[in-house]
Design a protein around this nucleic acid. Structure first.
Length: 575
DNA sequence: CCCATTCCTG
DNA sequence: CAGGAATGGG
């Protein structure tokens, strides 16, 4: 079956209602009143067409189902208006049965070459499909010629034919993606599937089709890419719909009003229960390339002595989203290395409209989280079945029985702050860099407090530790460099070595950790930097750098100078 | 043995 | 910034 037969039901939506007259060139010989959608719904003959299509939809006949659409949209025939007589063929179709029709079609196909389709533009299968379409059209045409159509239908058909003409370059020249439906599959199934799918597709998708079509009718490669993107998008939507269907039946864990800082305070035992179960059920499934350790070691023990807030999602995941929902955008993202794990999801979901961030920007994390939870629901822990076997959805549902939690179904779309991050984002990196102004050697406890919006698997912990190790590396390299350069200078006294906000050393560090310069570096950092610089200066001046481990003493000194991380780092005021 | 850390490399 | 090797502490 071809794309068009697959999209039988959606044909009226996609190609009539969904594609307005804007798609047609001004030279349209007989332009529709306002748009094709209007034509379809308001035109006096459009009603007939609609009725006809509905009748076709119910025919349970593959041929009769596919004929009208394919005829109108895939062939260049200028005659054969749809007529009421078609209903008689509908009866014929029922009586002859699918096998007879198939045999007839196959016979005709045998006598038809693919010369009417550019051989270099259609694959072998595509050629066959095109041939089938033409055969069907021919059959319809033959049948129709024997009868007379109504005038109104002829007029309607002329519109459809013109639409088909406008779309034929896409459909034929560029191997227009066809839903790969087995020819052995029941056409009824195909039809019903396409019907349900197209019916579930609201005007949104049609607008997207429209946008995409308008913007990509240029070169052939562009069109091919467009169609590929459309298919990707359809797949994405299918996943998104299925996930949405789950959450539509699932209450929420969070309300927007009570979560100014994107936090939901759940009872500690509940938070831990949820966190453990969530982690247990997902980590190895969602991040197989990250979580390489035994999961039982990853599961955190309950911290009953220290009730902590249960953060459903950090606000610090925002900048991964584009500024605007650009459909089928392929521009490279500013994906950092630690985000390569999540690159695929952002690529897949970045174009989806919907969620909005705190700043009003489209928040696509919503969709990713939906998918994540979907995975959580469908995949239980494989590695540690002995520990947690309760599905996540059950956990969430259990939690929702508690009176503390407000439930607002719309919050999923508005706030998407209901799930722990399973990977570190660029904003987490930014936050870590700002944290470095306070602490050069953060403990795991501090890291957990400051990044409580992520699930602390061993992998995440190691990554954070590695980050700070890299921060220190740059820090010490800069210190040594400036210390050595100071030694070369005439400045003799160590007391002349100072680090101020205007100094070159500070600018170098600030550029590294606070590139946007949107953070007020604490004075304490300047003090520590000055101490570090002087330590290096003294050690080098005393020739201690000949000792291979001469830096270690400095490291210890600096480690003791760590400040406590201010509370704002432990909440969500960074991002 | 695990883990944190440094060092080196890309 | 990440990966890997090496090191050293528990």
């Amino acid at each position: 079956m071809s794309f068009w037969s697959k999209g039988m039901c959606s044909s009226s939506d996609v190609c009539l209602a969904g594609c307005t007259a804007e798609h047609l060139p001004p030279s349209h010989p007989d332009p529709p009143p306002s748009n094709l959608g209007g034509f379809y719904t308001s035109h006096k003959d459009g009603k007939n067409i609609k009725g006809l299509i509905h009748r076709i939809e119910n025919t349970a006949s593959g041929l009769s189902c596919s004929v009208p659409v394919e005829y109108n949209l895939s062939t260049g025939s200028t005659r054969t208006p749809l007529s009421p007589v078609f209903s008689s063929h509908y009866d014929w179709s029922l009586n002859s049965g699918r096998q007879a029709k198939r045999a007839r079609v196959e016979n005709i196909i045998k006598g038809i070459t693919c010369t009417d389709v550019a051989p270099n533009q259609l694959e072998e299968t595509g050629c066959v499909c095109a041939g089938e379409e033409r055969v069907e059209v021919s059959a319809l045409h033959q049948r129709h010629v024997e009868t007379s159509g109504t005038e109104s239908l002829s007029e309607s058909h002329r519109y459809l034919r013109e639409v088909r003409t406008k779309f034929s370059p896409i459909c034929e020249d560029e191997k227009f993606p066809r839903w790969s439906v087995s020819s052995e599959a029941s056409t009824d199934e195909v039809l019903s599937k396409s019907c349900s799918e197209s019916e579930s597709s609201s005007g949104k998708i049609h607008q997207e089709w429209k946008k995409a079509t308008l913007g990509h009718l240029g070169s052939k490669p562009d069109r091919a890419k467009l169609m590929a993107d459309i298919l990707k998008y359809e797949l994405t939507r299918a996943v998104s719909r299925s996930v949405d269907s789950i959450f539509k039946s699932m209450p929420l864990v969070q309300t927007p009003t009570e979560m100014e800082n994107s936090e939901t305070t759940l009872p500690p035992h509940l938070a831990e229960c949820m966190e453990d179960k969530l982690r247990c059920g997902t980590a190895e499934v969602l991040l197989p390339d990250v979580q390489t350790e035994a999961l039982s070691l990853v599961v955190q023990k309950p911290e009953l002595e220290r009730p902590r807030n249960f953060i459903l999602q950090s606000t610090s995941a925002a900048p991964l989203t584009p500024k605007s929902p650009i459909f089928f955008s392929s521009e490279p993202e500013q994906a950092s290395k630690q985000d390569n794990i999540t690159h695929h999801r952002r690529h897949s979901f970045k174009c989806l409209p919907g969620g909005c961030s705190e700043g009003g920007e489209p928040r696509l994390d919503t969709y990713w989280n939906l998918v994540k939870v979907k995975s959580k629901v469908t995949s239980r822990s494989v590695r540690s079945p002995h520990t947690h076997t309760v599905p996540v959805d059950q956990v969430i549902l259990e939690s929702l029985q508690l009176p503390h939690v407000k439930l607002e179904p719309d919050c999923f779309e508005k706030n998407n702050l209901y799930m722990l991050n399973e990977c570190l984002t660029t904003n987490h990196l930014k936050k870590a860099k700002l944290m470095f102004f306070y602490t050069r050697y953060p403990s795991s406890v501090v890291l957990r407090m400051c990044f409580h919006d992520v699930q602390f698997t061993r992998c995440i912990t190691s990554q954070l530790i590695k980050w700070f190790s890299n921060f220190r590396e740059f820090y010490y390299i800069q210190m040594e460099k400036f210390a050595r350069s100071a030694l070369l200078d005439v400045a003799a006294d160590v007391r002349d070595l100072t680090v101020s906000r205007e100094s070159e050393l500070f600018r170098s560090l600030n550029m590294h950790y606070n590139k946007a310069n949107d953070f007020q570096v604490p004075d304490r950092f300047l003090e520590v930097a000055e101490i570090t610089l002087r330590e290096f200066y003294i050690a080098i001046s005393m020739g201690k750098d000949r000792d291979p481990s001469w830096k270690k003493t400095i490291y210890k000194v600096i480690c003791k100078l760590d400040s406590d991380v201010p509370p704002e780092f432990k909440s969500h005021h960074f991002g």
